Simulated assay, not measured.
Amino acid sequence: MDSLRSGHGGIQMLLTAEQEAQHIISSARNLRTVRLKQAKDEADQEMALYRSNMEADHQNRKSQTSSESIAKQLEEETQIRIQSLKESALKVSPDVVAMLLNYVTTVKN
């Protein structure tokens, strides 16, 4: 009868050990799930920050390019206007010189 009790006690110990092992495994799975969720949340935050930085950088580059483009366009328009004024001056220059010579050489009493 002692061997039956010791066999029954051994089985009981095995069942208890199995339950403890199941609790440990369950706890480890829960911890792993929690940690995976934390890692995903951290990655999402990091990705959002990175995206925000990249978008800000893109906007800065875009505005710089836009400013440079506007400056270049204004420079081109200015050069065109300067050239137009030079051409106009060349056209009227002989008339202005003739008019000035006329006033300088005319004697009034």
Rank of each mutant, 00 (worst) to 15 (best):
1 M>L: 11
2 D>E: 07
2 D>W: 06
3 S>T: 12
3 S>C: 03
4 L>M: 03
4 L>G: 06
6 S>H: 06
7 G>Y: 06
8 H>A: 15
9 G>D: 11
9 G>Y: 08
9 G>W: 09
14 L>R: 14
14 L>E: 10
15 L>Q: 13
15 L>D: 08
19 Q>R: 00
20 E>L: 04
20 E>K: 04
20 E>N: 04
20 E>Y: 07
21 A>V: 03
22 Q>A: 07
22 Q>T: 06
22 Q>E: 01
27 S>F: 02
28 A>V: 07
28 A>M: 04
28 A>Q: 02
28 A>R: 01
28 A>W: 02
30 N>S: 13
31 L>P: 00
31 L>N: 03
32 R>K: 01
32 R>A: 05
34 V>D: 05
34 V>P: 00
35 R>E: 01
35 R>V: 01
36 L>V: 14
36 L>Q: 11
37 K>W: 05
37 K>A: 12
38 Q>K: 05
39 A>R: 09
39 A>L: 06
40 K>I: 12
40 K>W: 09
41 D>P: 08
41 D>V: 06
42 E>F: 03
43 A>V: 07
45 Q>F: 09
45 Q>T: 05
45 Q>V: 12
45 Q>P: 13
46 E>K: 14
46 E>A: 12
46 E>W: 06
48 A>E: 15
50 Y>R: 07
52 S>R: 07
53 N>Q: 15
53 N>F: 10
53 N>K: 12
56 A>P: 00
57 D>I: 14
57 D>E: 15
58 H>L: 11
60 N>D: 08
60 N>K: 10
60 N>A: 13
61 R>H: 10
61 R>S: 11
62 K>Q: 15
64 Q>R: 11
65 T>D: 11
66 S>V: 01
66 S>G: 02
67 S>T: 12
67 S>I: 08
69 S>W: 00
72 K>H: 07
74 L>G: 02
75 E>V: 05
77 E>K: 00
77 E>G: 01
77 E>Y: 00
78 T>R: 08
78 T>Y: 05
78 T>D: 12
79 Q>V: 15
80 I>Q: 15
80 I>D: 06
83 Q>S: 11
83 Q>D: 08
84 S>T: 09
85 L>W: 06
85 L>S: 06
85 L>A: 06
86 K>T: 10
87 E>P: 01
87 E>V: 12
89 A>I: 13
89 A>P: 10
90 L>W: 10
90 L>D: 08
91 K>E: 13
91 K>P: 01
91 K>R: 14
92 V>D: 04
93 S>C: 04
93 S>W: 10
94 P>V: 03
95 D>R: 14
95 D>V: 11
95 D>T: 08
96 V>N: 07
96 V>A: 04
96 V>Q: 04
97 V>H: 04
99 M>E: 14
99 M>P: 01
100 L>D: 12
100 L>Y: 05
102 N>T: 15
102 N>Y: 15
102 N>D: 12
103 Y>L: 14
104 V>R: 10
106 T>Q: 02
106 T>W: 00
107 V>Y: 02
108 K>N: 10
109 N>E: 05
109 N>L: 02
